[in-house]
Design a protein around this nucleic acid. Structure first.
Lengths: 205, 205
DNA sequence: GCTTTTACCGACCACTCGGTTTGTAACTAT
DNA sequence: ATAGTTACAAACCGAGTGGTCGGTAAAAGC
């Protein structure tokens, strides 16, 4: 049983380092040997635990990327407050983290989507699943907000979710270079502007 | 002199095919040989005309990508009409083209930005320059719209430009898979919503 | 105590990569 | 006609690539 523990410890180490390097250099630009070198492990160790580089990556997606999206983008918007506040704060924090990350290479999920788009259906399926989960949760937060009178009832929540996802992916892409802090500030103030336009109009009492 | 013509014809053919394959498979996943095979040319031919794969790509950026961004995203928004109309129509058309493109792999510029982000400074500089040109033109269109009374004078045009660029890059990234037409429709209606919020409020006469 | 399983090593394979070198046919300038 | 230049072909190089395989030491199961 603690045999299994050792196995899992090694596999975990491989996945952590794997994700790090894949994120930094891209999937195709990171060789299995690169990962192994960092861990002082051999090819034999890798192919003892995993069938292929691709299978290895898919395990990383399911073990790490899903969780990161959950903790960074989904859990923070659960709740019954005003969706505008929830989502704005969530984005603000996600961008702030990126600004202060010395080794930021963009939004993990969209980077890989970009790399595999139209080139690797199997991996794309897994990545799109994560995107879908995010979208569904955004929609449900917005709809809850509609019921609670925060969001205008004429608003198309699916549309708003797509728009929010798009803008987030975009800003994270261009934030990598240049002056991320200025970009973040400008983006956030326009995001608030957008939210104002879909919030329920407060008729003067 | 017509010697030079032959030279330029060959180089042009290489760049056209090069861009095609780089766009389809990514820069690092396209070998020089892949391009040469398509043209029935040899390595010798390639390295006779270009110093390296990287130099070759930079020439492609300057000869083709700049022009594509101009014709697709900059020229259509030049004019003195309402920026909301100009930009909305421009995005609409750009997305429509993508929807009907059987071989769409996303937004050329942002795909490469994503691939080179934090990995190749030299190429990133050229790509960021294009992005900057686009941004500057968006800002100037918006400011012109302010002067002409179309855009609310409290709006931060730089911020709006960043927001528009972000959302466009994002929607093009997620539009590749799934149902591009539905995504386009949803995106466009939210974009109009956003523009409504930054247009000058028409006080009832 | 003996056997089996596990976790890992490291040499090796066939292949691909960007880039170099050498050779040559055709054209140009004199 | 001849000498030089241009535009390309083709073989080649060394460094990597994902993946295989035979071996081994230690632990687990009986």
């Amino acid at each position: 049983m603690d045999k299994n523990l050792k196995r899992m410890a090694t596999m975990h180490r491989m996945q952590v380092t794997g994700l790090e390097l894949f994120y930094k250099n891209g999937y195709y630009n990171t060789s299995v040997d690169d990962i192994l070198k960092e861990l002082s492990l051999s090819k034999g160790a890798f192919y003892h635990h995993y069938e292929s580089k691709e299978d290895f990556f898919i395990e990383i997606i399911q073990n790490f990327m899903v969780r990161k999206v959950y903790s960074m983008l989904i859990e923070p918007i659960e709740g019954h407050e005003n969706p505008a506040t929830l989502i704005t704060n969530c984005f603000e924090e996600a961008l702030e983290t990126a600004v202060h990350n010395e080794m930021d290479f963009g939004f993990l999920l969209s980077n890989f989507i970009c790399e595999f788009n139209g080139r690797n259906q199997r991996i794309m399926k897994h990545l799109n699943d994560i995107l879908k989960i995010w979208e569904v949760n955004l929609v449900s937060t917005l709809q809850k907000g509609k019921l609670n009178g925060y969001i205008d009832r004429h608003i198309d929540c699916e549309g708003a979710a797509v728009f929010l996802i798009s803008s987030f992916i975009g800003i994270r892409t261009i934030m990598v270079e240049a002056s991320p802090n200025a970009l973040k500030y400008r983006f956030m103030s326009q995001l608030r502007q957008y939210f104002k336009s879909i919030e329920t109009k407060q008729t003067v009492v």
